[in-house]
Design a protein around this nucleic acid. Structure first.
Lengths: 242, 242
DNA sequence: ACAAATACTAATCATTTGATTAAAATACTT
DNA sequence: AAGTATTTTAATCAAATGATTAGTATTTGT
């Protein structure tokens, strides 16, 4: 029986297969990709993918792990930087995100789909210890600012959801958006580069935005989102009469 | 050879199979669901799904079409209502969205995935004629407000992307968010209900938010996002010094 | 140059999976 | 109740698919 090479196999072809797998998996998802698709994309024989990676699932795990690692690590560095302000962190984060998304437009949908398909497995792969949001410098910064009354109190998770939602959604919904707005890929990307500047501004507006304290005073999580100064918004008294 | 029933087949079982299919398809996506999963979920024999629906794909098409129809129609009514202000439309839209998402948490990821898998087919199914964004009343309202200088000029597509992104993302990323924040399903839903009130406020802040007009004056699409009054945001002069 | 190790391929296997068939069970009509 | 149509099932098929095997080409070490 043959023994698999332990040291330094032809790094080139192994890498080529991995590259092909990354491409196909990321575009079609685990369930919809056939090992034959990967073989064809790589230009090598079907058997080679098992020769190098044992199984479709093992190969997938490697691809996914690398995706998550580069993803998480790039974030960590930014949000734990003690030299930047909160606002600067958000700017860098969003800019970084959008650049990455323009290069890999179907990465977010891929990750979200696969996390959804098997949350336990995938969440385990993300450095759980790495990303403890209580320990991140950005979280401490937020608390300081609230304590110093520089910004209204709010569960910072809301801000994170807004940042990621605003940044990622256009890419996730790209086929629909491009079709509706009749945009070429290039025009779409220009629009996204535009958002690179806009989203930080919008997020600042959101962060500074006072919240009226009318209804439910129940707290969710640990922060209380209600309570604040001027109720600039209530009923229809806002800026727009029909 | 047997002839398929043309009129009034046992509506109960047909509906049960469709219900099972909806459940499985929506949770796992087209590629990952086996016809046997649907059969098992429905409690009926595997052959029945072909007896009633001819093929897996035909059944899927029906499910998807129904999803898209209920989705699009509910939106149309809101954004074409001539009796409400823009702000009210957004409130109703977001509220409606979130209620629906709490009931069907994995609907958005499902639709996004399938649209991505076969954009031409799926976009065709959405009432293309229905959703011509030039013709929607909400678009006209927006233009009026810009013309009347009640709000700064901005490509309204940005607002739509923000609304949908902020609303949908938490659900799409639910497994990750729930895990990171250590939230039960109930706590998560409470957080989402909280966002039902917050997102309209945030969107108003975004709409009113002035945009500095420093760099690229290239227009994307039809609107020009740059040009405006007070540059409250530039460089690091914002609200947060480390 | 020769032999052993490594890289690669064609052919094939065993399961899975979407679909069909033929027959059994149930409902409907008269 | 008999006969017909409809609904449901068990068994099976054919294609797709992940994986393996056995053997061929190529590289490497000496």
């Amino acid at each position: 029986m043959k023994v698999r090479p332990e040291i330094e196999p032809n790094i080139s072809t192994e890498e080529k297969i991995k590259e092909a797998a990354r491409k196909v998996f990321t575009r079609k998802g685990y369930a919809a990709t056939r090992t034959r698709d990967i073989a064809e994309e790589s230009g090598y024989n079907l058997a080679l993918i098992n020769y190098y990676f044992r199984s479709k699932e093992k190969l997938f795990d490697i691809i996914m792990l690398e995706h998550l690692q580069t993803f998480v690590h790039s974030i960590i560095g930014i949000v734990n930087d003690t030299a930047t302000t909160l606002q600067q962190k958000l700017e860098v984060l969003i800019s970084h995100y959008i650049d990455m998304l323009i290069k890999n437009p179907d990465l977010p949908l891929f990750i979200l789909t696969e996390v959804n398909a098997d949350p336990v497995k995938l969440i385990g792969k993300i450095g759980v210890n790495d990303l403890d949001h209580k320990e991140l410098f950005i979280s401490k910064q937020w608390k300081e600012l609230v304590k110093a009354k520089k910004i209204p109190p709010l569960n910072p998770a809301h801000i994170m959801m807004n940042v990621i939602g605003m940044t990622i959604f256009p890419f996730v919904g790209s086929p629909l958006i491009r079709d509706r707005m009749k945009l070429s890929m290039e025009e779409f990307n220009t629009l996204m580069l535009e958002r690179k500047k806009l989203i930080p501004i919008w997020i600042q507006a959101i962060i500074l935005c006072p919240i009226p304290n009318n209804s439910n005073p129940k707290k969710t999580g640990e922060h209380n989102t209600t309570r604040n100064k001027v109720p600039i918004f209530s009923g229809g008294s806002g800026f727009l009469s029909k």
